[in-house]
Nucleic acid binder design. Structure first.
Lengths: 340, 340
DNA sequence: GTCTTGATGGTAAGCGCTTTCACCACCTCG
DNA sequence: CGAGGTGGTGAAAGCGCTTACCATCAAGAC
């Protein structure tokens, strides 16, 4: 409680407050005689002095905090990004303040405001935006208020706002996947497209459709199932698809977690994944690399995405919002064996 | 940059600093005339005032930060705990500061010191301790320095330090699992025991052995494989076990991630998981619920563990360190079908 | 009518640090 | 041998808030 302050240290060392501060932090253009410095350091150690970061932040006018806002930290997609962010932040001497919004844009906005209060140096926001201009406008307002206060922002996802963005190549990756599947002999396609208005899902769907089109194939509208962007959403979508009796060779789930749900649904329906029906996902979640049959997917380097976003906020602020594109690569595995 | 301060708001509203502060925060035993309060609030809104949390922390002498220290945020075990912590923290009006140590105890200590500097209200530490008294002593010292400053601490794991602890019933759960497997007809046991000195792994192993003993069975020392507490560790351990030609019915991996690695190794060796060899894990990681065959495991309510630990730090500090035991429950699935 | 009170508003004293000045020795040259 | 540096040190002014502590005023209490 009665924590020791810098003045205590100064008194103990028999120097002024100013000298103590300089000795401990090594001031920019002032030096302290080695002998004095040692005395201060010794006193600090003896008293177990721990500088008050809040006071320092206040005096220096800048903090050492970086805010990370994700939809759901328990989701492997986001926790991988978080790992990248914490690593890069630590490298830069920043602590990460984590906010998990549970997919609620209102809480996203609220957290931006809290982080603004904390005078966080930067905010990294991950997670797909949605198509709701009312909400997006408020988000935009919150972000620009934050930036007006000198904060840096990087988004991971769609380049929707005027801020630095790390964009994952959802469209291109999905197109590549479509082409690869077509090349493997698949002809009748379906998709678990996620919820309407979900931009990441939409991009992946568009890419997939475009890829198919480039090979002269197509995705029938009745083969596009809409459901939640979750494991259970994948399960539901797949069940409905199978129930509909649609004749389909392969189905794309717009993320790995949905794909795994879809695999479970197929199994429960007695359909063999792979030889019976192909299933492909997106993200290449590490934890899911060992499902059987192994899942065809599009790899997204999530740790790197997190690190890149963090670094984007750390450098000089650019005049123009920067756009960092992160390539995604198709990984064909056993869930979509070559079709004879 | 030139962020607006409370004095700006006060001037704009034509009141004193004190009144502005009281109007905005609703002081404890002071009231502000509604008319004035509205004027202040209006001014604050007009100027886009955002209180400076650092200054508030400094003036109030207490922050609204809770520190969370985990080994690896990308690990589903920890990210689930983190989800529980963020939820509980938000309920209490706290922001979570996340530190991911990469299993390095030195960084654990360093982060405790940083959190102490930030004057975080509480620290939740998750992750197995190791048997290294030198390191543990330093950790203990760092924690007690932090607590001397008024901070609360809760650990998730072994009740090793004199702090509130949420202990997962590793021993009992593993014993239950052993009994259940024995009852299912398994007789020849092996284990992927994780690294030596890893306390969680050790507890699980001891529980497993005890459970077997209670049924008159035993775990042959040569069937205990030591490897990393990771997916790859599980793979390696399993491969060695299979290579050794040991005659085994079922193998316990001390966590789910290792179990999944073991399943992969079995598959690669042409051994059928389930009918060929049983495999069981521990934790019941959500993301892994859909692996095939579905994994027998011991469920640990990780979200709840995180929430409980958080709540432990929030209430009145207890004279005695509290110990909250969280039950774990056996979940038998297809990776260990009943043995005829 | 005077005296208490309770409700309000303002003044000013910090909270623990950093940093600008001012000041003081000493040096180094011309 | 004085002018003009040059390191080193300390005093003190904040940083943006909260919160005693006072001062004021109107409404009741006697």
């Amino acid at each position: 409680m009665a924590s020791v302050t810098l003045s205590d240290v100064a008194r103990e060392a028999g120097v002024s407050l100013a000298t103590a501060s300089r000795a401990i932090n090594g001031s920019a253009n002032r030096t302290v005689r080695p002998e004095l410095r040692d005395r201060v350091l010794a006193a600090a150690a003896a008293l177990h002095y721990s500088p008050d970061a809040n006071a320092q932040a206040m005096a220096r006018g800048r903090t050492t905090t970086l805010g990370l806002i994700v939809h759901d930290i328990a989701d492997p997609y986001f926790s991988s990004i978080a790992a990248g962010v914490t690593t890069a932040a630590e490298r830069a001497g920043l602590m990460v303040t984590l906010a998990s919004t549970g997919h609620d844009p209102e809480r996203e906005i609220a957290f931006i405001e809290v982080l603004q209060s904390q005078r966080a140096r930067a905010i990294v926001m991950a997670g797909s935006r949605i198509e709701d201009e009312t909400v997006n406008d408020r988000l935009r307002a919150a972000l620009s208020a934050y930036r007006a206060g000198g904060g840096a922002v990087a988004m991971i996802g769609q380049p929707l706002f005027d801020v630095d963005t790390v964009a994952i190549e959802n469209t291109a990756g999905a197109a590549d996947l479509a082409v690869a599947l077509h090349a493997a002999g698949y002809r009748r396609f379906a998709a678990l497209a996620g919820p309407a208005g979900h931009l990441t899902a939409r991009d992946r769907m568009e890419g997939f459709a475009a890829g198919l089109a480039s090979r002269g194939a197509a995705l029938a509208p009745e083969h596009i199932m809409r459901s939640a962007f979750t494991r259970d959403g994948g399960y539901e979508g797949m069940r409905e698809l199978l129930d509909s009796g649609a004749a389909v060779d392969v189905v794309l789930a717009v993320n790995d977690v949905m794909a795994v749900g879809a695999m479970a649904a197929a199994r429960d329906a007695g359909v063999t994944v792979g030889t019976g029906i192909g299933i492909a996902g997106f993200d290449d979640i590490v934890t899911l690399r060992d499902v059987t049959p192994s899942l065809t997917t599009v790899r997204v380097p999530l740790l790197q995405v997190g690190a890149t976003a963090t670094e984007l906020t750390l450098g000089e602020p650019a005049a123009e919002p920067r756009l960092e594109r992160v390539a995604s690569t198709v990984v064909l595995r056993d869930s979509t064996p070559p079709r004879a």
